[in-house]
Amino acid sequence: MESVAGLDVGVKKSALCLVTRDAASMRPVCRHRTATDPSSIGTWLASQGVVRVGLEAGAQSSWLARELEHRGFEVTVMEARRQRAFGAYSKVKTDERDARLIGEALATGL
């Protein structure tokens, strides 16, 4: 079973969602909110056994992706328009839901 994490990055706080996937199913396991700081985010991801991380392209993405890569994570920065299309079925927009959608997109290989 593989665990990946989706991050919805904010200026001060970021929402994280751990998603597991196996051959038959995919499901969100837990959510977490922490300071937008590579150390805080990296510590939580490592404690959950996550190796792959997805985040949406934005103002904070490049430096955060670089810092997480230095900490040993495989980071995928997703283009915002494609990510919006993946989550278009959802009428509710929250940071936690965005983090879950990013995690699901990463887990499915999009």
Rank of each mutant, 00 (worst) to 15 (best):
A105I: 04
E79T: 07
L16N: 00
Q48E: 06
Q60E: 09
E96H: 10
G87R: 08
G54T: 06
G6D: 06
A24Q: 13
R82M: 08
K12S: 14
L110K: 02
V50E: 02
E74Y: 01
R21W: 05
P28A: 15
L16V: 14
R100I: 09
R71V: 03
S90T: 10
A85R: 08
E74G: 05
G72W: 02
Q60H: 12
K12N: 14
R52S: 10
L45F: 00
F73V: 00
L64Q: 06
T20F: 02
R66L: 10
W44K: 00
R82Y: 12
A80R: 14
I41D: 02
L106V: 01
E96S: 14
A80P: 15
L18H: 02
A80Q: 15
W63G: 11
I41N: 05
W63Q: 15
L18V: 08
C30S: 07
V29Q: 03
R84I: 09
S47H: 00
S47V: 03
A5Y: 04
R66Q: 10
G103D: 01
L45T: 03
V53K: 00
R27G: 14
E69R: 09
A15Y: 10
D37V: 09
K91G: 12
S39G: 12
S39N: 12
G109F: 05
L106I: 03
I102M: 09
L64D: 08
E2C: 03
S39L: 11
T43E: 14
M78T: 06
T76Y: 12
E2S: 03
G49Q: 03
E104C: 11
A65L: 08
R33K: 15
R97K: 15
R97M: 14
A5D: 01
V53W: 00
E67C: 10
K91H: 11
K91T: 13
L45E: 02
Q48H: 02
K91D: 12
G58A: 12
L106W: 06
A85H: 04
G58Q: 05
C17A: 12
V19W: 01
S25A: 14
G72V: 07
K93Y: 11
V4A: 01
L7E: 08
L18F: 06
D22E: 05
H70S: 10
R71P: 04
E69C: 02
S14Y: 07
S39I: 11
H70E: 13
